Simulated assay, not measured.
Amino acid sequence: MPHTPPGRSQAGADAPHEHQHSYIANNTKGDYLKRLRRIEGQARGLQRMVEEEKYCIDILTQISAMTKALEAVALGLLDEHMAHCVVDAVAAGGEEAQIKLKEASDAIARLVRS
């Protein structure tokens, strides 16, 4: 059974804009996973800091570092999407190009709001 990305129904999984994710093809999957595991460790560290009632400013500093790390992953994935998925769709033209551009625009809007 194919993987259905979060926020998409299984029925929509066969839509024309579903495809193999290019960041895997570019051998960057391992880099993203390593970064996300580091962020996971930061989250556990934050939990310990709260449990141990560490100084509030120290906790906030760590939250800021974790937020920046997540933003770096998000920007890397967005860059991959723009460089491959969007460029390929625009080169092919048609409705697929509009779909990919809208997805990228929506993703950027979500990042800016967060």
Rank of each mutant, 00 (worst) to 15 (best):
L75W: 04
Q47W: 08
D14Q: 05
D88S: 12
Q62T: 02
D88I: 08
Q10A: 06
Y55I: 07
V112R: 15
R113A: 15
R48L: 14
G94K: 02
H3P: 06
I59V: 08
E40A: 05
R48Y: 09
I59F: 04
L111Q: 11
Q10H: 05
D88V: 12
R35T: 12
K100A: 11
Q47K: 13
E18H: 00
E18L: 09
E40M: 06
A107H: 12
K29E: 04
G76D: 09
Q47C: 12
T67I: 09
G30D: 03
L60E: 03
H3R: 15
L75S: 10
K54Q: 09
L70G: 06
A107Q: 14
A72V: 02
L60W: 06
D14K: 13
A91W: 09
S114K: 15
Q47M: 10
C85A: 11
V87F: 04
A109K: 15
K102A: 11
L46I: 06
G94C: 01
A74R: 09
S64M: 10
R8A: 12
L111E: 05
D88G: 07
G45H: 07
H81A: 08
S105R: 10
R110V: 15
D58V: 03
L60F: 05
M82G: 06
A83R: 09
A13F: 06
Y23T: 10
N27A: 06
I59G: 04
R38A: 14
V112H: 10
R113Q: 15
H17M: 11
Q98I: 03
A65K: 02
L70A: 03
G41E: 10
Y23D: 04
R110Y: 14
Y55F: 14
M82T: 03
E53D: 13
E51M: 06
K102V: 05
S9W: 09
E96W: 09
A25N: 06
H19W: 02
P5A: 14
A11G: 13
S105K: 08
R37D: 15
A13K: 00
P16D: 04
L46W: 05
R48W: 07
Q20Y: 14
